[in-house]
Design a protein around this nucleic acid. Structure first.
Length: 416
RNA sequence: GUGACUGUAGCUCAGUUGGUAGAGUCCCAGGUUGUGGCCCUGGUUGCCGUGGGUUCGAGUCCCAUCAGUCACCCCA
């Protein structure tokens, strides 16, 4: 029969990688709940319009990266390419968007039809954090501090925080005019094909272009942070003041532009130099107009997303914990007894295995050694006859014979 | 969507100027050992990604195709 293989850009996750993901999730829950965030679980499939309206019609994500298809009744559905839109939809739909300060985190798979490479899959996983209901710079600062706290708890310290402010509906259009004016005279010899289009549709993105030539010709382009309105300037200054006081180091990057249109004011990105070209492990910012643009109340919000695959690239492979025992059955007639002994010990809280086939003594002892188990429990003919078991300490090579009923107590006394 | 590189045992890879496949590891059995991680002996495992072509003969050359990797792009 012909083998069926997985879809390009989708992955099977075996140990120890699956353990790394479990660690990433467990740490997120542990840290975020300390800041008052609660878990929210939302659908993977949404109506396409949710994403085109929130992320932005002109973005690459919407234009060429979404898994969009009609359902059986012809409605256009899309596998979520990011989590924020769905969370906002849920908050609005369940009338929790203006319910004081709503703080939630969510994690799970996202889907983007891109060419796979290191740190970029078509199905990838994000941890998403959203706080809706406050426009105060204190919230921007707290969420960034929490993100740093989380990454530190994951053991990741060699990361750079990039920070910028994108202004608001008052000052950004003014800046965009200034920027358009600056870009107006640029020709095809100066900007790449994409940027020639962007300078009309989405001029901010020109600043973020990676093409060397574009960088060169936009080197002295106006900076948004020089054109913020007084309110935005004060907001940004306040955020920075708190971060400085908290000892959070960051670099200002006036060219940092998020790929999603809904961001305003504070935006940030966490970058690693150790995971290849897809260097951003987390990114986010403030999105004060988003909720109302999706038909909800006019409430401000801040959020970020972490790429779990990218975090996993940075986390040392955690070894699965060694089992407590390993049963070696030296007489084929003892296989049943071995299984029952293992089962008894598992109920008592210990981890370990018993064999399903009577292999040679040598290979069983070898397997016991390789499993890393602290104790090897030997069942030979004598032990089967007397209801006992030989307990061998694999670290000291000492052993003693015990009644099988006493093994649990013995392990409890010797295992930490 | 564009480009470069790769595709040989379960895993990591070698395979020289084209002559119908090899090592290590893993697994199994045995030896040594105080019933285990070291060491020694023996053994199993391959549509050489797939489909064409050149040739007396192709893992080795050519074309196509599929898959993977990295980069562009984009983003977490």
């Amino acid at each position: 029969m012909e083998k069926i293989q997985k879809i390009k850009g989708f992955a099977d996750l075996f140990p120890p990688d699956s353990g790394v993901f479990a660690f990433i999730e467990a740490t997120a829950r542990s840290v975020f709940t300390r800041y008052g965030y609660q878990e929210l679980r939302i659908p993977i499939l949404e109506r396409t319009e949710l994403f085109s309206r929130s992320i932005g019609e002109e973005t690459d994500v919407v234009q060429k990266e979404m898994y969009t298809f009609p359902d059986r009744k012809g409605r256009s559905l899309t596998l979520r390419p990011e989590a924020t839109a769905g969370v906002m939809r849920a908050l609005i739909e369940e009338k929790r968007a203006d319910d004081g300060l709503a703080k939630y985190f969510a994690y799970g798979p996202m889907f983007r039809y891109e060419r796979p490479q290191k740190g970029r899959m078509r199905q990838f996983h994000q941890i998403d954090v959203e706080a809706v209901g406050s426009g105060e710079p204190l919230l921007d600062a707290e969420i960034l501090l929490m993100l740093r706290h989380y990454l530190t708890e994951l053991g990741l310290t060699q990361l750079t925080v990039e920070l910028n402010s994108l202004g608001c509906p008052v000052c950004r259009p003014v800046f965009l005019d200034v920027l358009r004016e600056f870009l107006k005279g640029m020709h095809k010899e100066q900007l790449c094909e994409d940027c020639m289009r962007r300078k009309l549709t989405n001029p901010l993105r020109v600043l973020d272009c990676k093409v060397p030539q574009c960088k060169e010709f936009t080197a002295d382009a106006p900076k948004i942070t020089d054109h913020l309105c007084p309110e935005c300037a004060e907001h940004f200054a306040a955020v920075r003041r708190i971060l400085d006081a908290a000892g959070l180091e960051y670099v200002l990057n006036p060219r940092l532009v998020r790929g999603l249109d809904y961001y305003v004011r504070t935006t940030f990105e966490i970058v690693s130099g150790a995971i290849g070209a897809q260097s951003s492990v987390a990114g986010g910012g403030r999105y004060d107009g988003l909720v109302s643009s999706l038909g909800g109340p006019d409430v401000p919000g801040v959020g970020f997303a972490c790429g779990m695959e990218r975090l996993a690239l940075l986390i040392a492979q955690n070894t699965t914990p060694a089992p407590d025992f390993f049963v070696a059955v030296l007489d084929p007639a003892g296989l049943d007894t071995g299984l029952l002994l293992a089962q008894h010990l598992r109920r008592e809280g210990f981890a370990g295995e018993a064999p399903f086939a009577a292999k040679s003594t040598k290979s069983q002892m070898r397997a016991a050694g390789k499993s890393g188990a602290r104790f090897c429990l030997l069942l030979g003919p004598d032990e089967l006859a007397t209801g006992s078991v030989v307990v061998k300490d694999m670290t000291t090579s000492t052993q003693e014979s015990l009644p099988r009923d006493d093994v649990a107590a013995f392990l409890r006394a010797h295992c930490a």
